[in-house]
Structure formats: structure tokens, C-alpha cells
Amino acid sequence: MSELYIGLMSGTSLDGVDGVLVDFSDSKCLVRQHWSAPLATELRAELLALNTAGADELHRAALAANALVRTYADTVQALLADSGVVASAVRAIGAHGQTVRHRPQAFDGTGYTLQLNNPALLAELTGITVVADFRSRDVAAGGQGAPLVPAFHQHVFAQPQATMLVLNIGGISNLSVLGAKDDAQGQVLGFDCGPGNALMDYWCQRHTGQPFDRDGAWAATGTLLPALLAQCLAEPYLHQPPPKSTGRDLFNPHWLHAQLDTHGNAAPQDIQATLTELTASACASSVSSYGKKSKNLAVCGGGAFNQHLMHRLQALLPTVAVQPSDAYGLPAQQVEAAAFAWLARQTLCGAPGNLQSVTGAQGARVLGAIYPA
């Protein structure tokens, strides 16, 4: 039976779609091909707008899901063409979809999580079985539904005799604390630290017209605003114990402008510098609180390419080696897409994809819904 899977990821940053073709033969994780596709400007704007309440949401969300899936399908075709692999050789596609609401345990005690997707259409367009809707079962079981990547991080990055840390910095940042493989008590912990790139990207787009602060160069020209940083770090979410997860439902422009109400005269580059420090500080605080046993931190996601942010992380964690995940065998831009390929495999194998110690669910669950080719 084929051990080739495709993983697709469009994260909270809304910077594009990453796709990987992964070979899981011998239970290893070998990325054979990677492809990135930008989101069309109109689609990105619509997905961002759908994070908040608006007119005719159901209709707009359905059409946005169709448009996103066509980008997914184009990514799949590019992966197959570049690798020389035929569709029939791929066992399944893991397609996470685009998160537009994430409110686990809210309102009625169960809450919900919503990812825009049309996996049935993706199966039709590609001729490949699709696995999707990974978060819902964990939420139904009383969990946060996120983050789901720590189980995959354990599979790929865990070390035999040392605790390992993996920090994913997408729109939101999340930390995985991976106990040593040889330690019978070695447990996996994971949670969302707080904002990642989402606030920085928004502020950069607003003031420079660029979708993100390349290399953190603009932030590096600014001066830190200590009072604003302290105000942002007082956000209650940042002080909650795990299990916990968050998203644009909290860390969005409305939240940011509420913090800025008393800092209206600050220079935009100073605010960018402070937002970068907010992300670095929230991540470093999480490491200091829950990852004390580790000396190694692998960083993945778009934040790994922000040199100023990486420099600030290293400065705040002087006893920890802060490196992109490339140093541990899996490039930073490929990790999340590979995680959803792995989660699709778990689903088809009837194996759990969540970790109770991470999400707080009532137990391990097989995640995802299957749409046969």
C-alpha cells in the first residue's frame, strides 16, 4: 500500500498555501516535494474579512472555500508534476482548510472551531482521497482542537535523551514541549503562546503596503515602547495555564487598536518593533515556564524567516539554542503541511491524531473526515 501522502496548509498568516508530498515508508517522514502558492489578493482579503461577522457570511464563506480549494488543487497538481508522481500513487491528501473562527468550550460548554474548506470538491478535482476537518472531533471530546501539530512534532523532532522544544510561528504562535523518547515519564505538552505574525503583518500592511515585514527589517528601525509592551503582555490569555488555544478571534486589529488608544502619537516603526517584541516575549515566556529542561528550540513557520524576531528570541533565551527547524531535518516552511499529511495518515490507519496532554480532550481520538477519491 502506498505511503505517499500530500499535506496542504494555509495558516492564520494568510500568506499562501504550502503543499508537501511526503513519503512515510518505514514510519519516517521524507518530504519528496514542496510547493508554495500565494493566495489571490481578493481571496486573501475575503478570508481575512470572514474572521469577523459580516453581511451574507454563509454565501461568502461557501464561495471562498471553493476558491481556496481550487488553489489547493493547483498546488496538488504542481506537486505531482514536479515529482513525477501520478495521482493514483498518493494514498490521501490532508487538507486543513482555513480557520476563520476558533471558539472551543465557549458559549455552550462545547463551542466550535470552523475551517473553510470543500474537501468533496478537492477530491473531485484531484482524484485523490481527501481527509479534512481534523479539529472538530477533539473539540467534541472536550478539547481545544488545537494545536494538533505537537503529536507530529513528537514523531519527527523528539530526541532520545533530551527534552526538545518546537516553536511554530504562524499568524499565532504555538509551542511543543517534547519529553525525551527514552524517558518513560516523558510527556508532550503543547499550546498556543499568543500572537505570532498576525499583528505584525497587519501593521506592516497598513503602514508600508507590504504584506509582511521582510526579515523584520522595518521593526529593527524602530524603538521599543516599554509601556505599550507591558500593556499588551497584561492580556489575560497570556497568563492562562495550558491547555489553551487562540486565534484571530482574540488577537486581531480591534484588540491591537484597543491597546494603542493611549499611544496614538507613537511612530509606526516603534509600534512594529513593540509588536515584534510582544511575539518574542510571549514565546520566550512560554519556553521559560514550560520548557525549562530543554536547551534546544527548533523554530518553524513564517516567523523563522524574520531575522529580527529570531534575534530577539535568542536574546530573551540566552541558554537555549534557537534555530530554524531546518537544523533538525525538516525545513521551517514545510513543517505544518507535513503535519497534516501525517494526520491524514493517522486517520486512514485508525490511529489517534490528538494528544490529551495537549488539547485537554477526554482522551485520544481518531481525527478527520474521509472523502474517498
Rank of each mutant, 00 (worst) to 15 (best):
L343G: 00
A304G: 11
H311C: 14
L348R: 10
G350D: 10
L275C: 07
A284T: 08
L313R: 13
G303V: 05
L309R: 12
C283K: 05
I271S: 03
D270R: 05
W342M: 01
A337G: 11
S288C: 14
C300D: 07
V366G: 05
Q333M: 11
C300T: 10
A282H: 10
A338T: 09
K295L: 09
Y328G: 00
L275R: 04
P268F: 02
P331Q: 03
V358F: 03
L367P: 06
G303I: 08
V335F: 04
S281R: 09
A339S: 15
A282Q: 05
M310N: 04
L367A: 11
P352W: 00
T276E: 15
K292Y: 05
L313N: 14
D326K: 08
Q346G: 00
Q356M: 09
D326L: 09
G360N: 09
L348E: 06
Q333D: 14
L367I: 14
A361S: 12
G350A: 10
Q356N: 06
A321W: 04
Q314K: 14
L367T: 13
P318M: 03
G291R: 04
T359M: 15
D326N: 14
L316P: 02
P331D: 03
A369Q: 15
A341Q: 07
G303M: 05
V358M: 03
Q323F: 08
L275N: 01
A282N: 04
S288I: 09
M310F: 05
G329A: 01
A339R: 07
F305K: 14
T347Q: 14
A339G: 08
L275M: 06
L309T: 12
E336V: 07
L313K: 14
T319H: 13
A304T: 10
Q346W: 00
A284W: 06
V366D: 07
L348W: 12
H311A: 15
T276Y: 13
K295C: 11
W342F: 12
Y290N: 11
G291Q: 03
Q333S: 13
P268L: 01
A337I: 12
A364D: 03
K293H: 13
Q333G: 12
K292I: 09
Y290P: 04
V287F: 02
H311Q: 15
G303S: 06
G301E: 06
A341R: 06
L297C: 03
A284H: 11
A361W: 07
C300S: 11
Q333W: 10
A364I: 01
V299H: 07
A282G: 05
A280C: 12
A351G: 03
A327N: 01
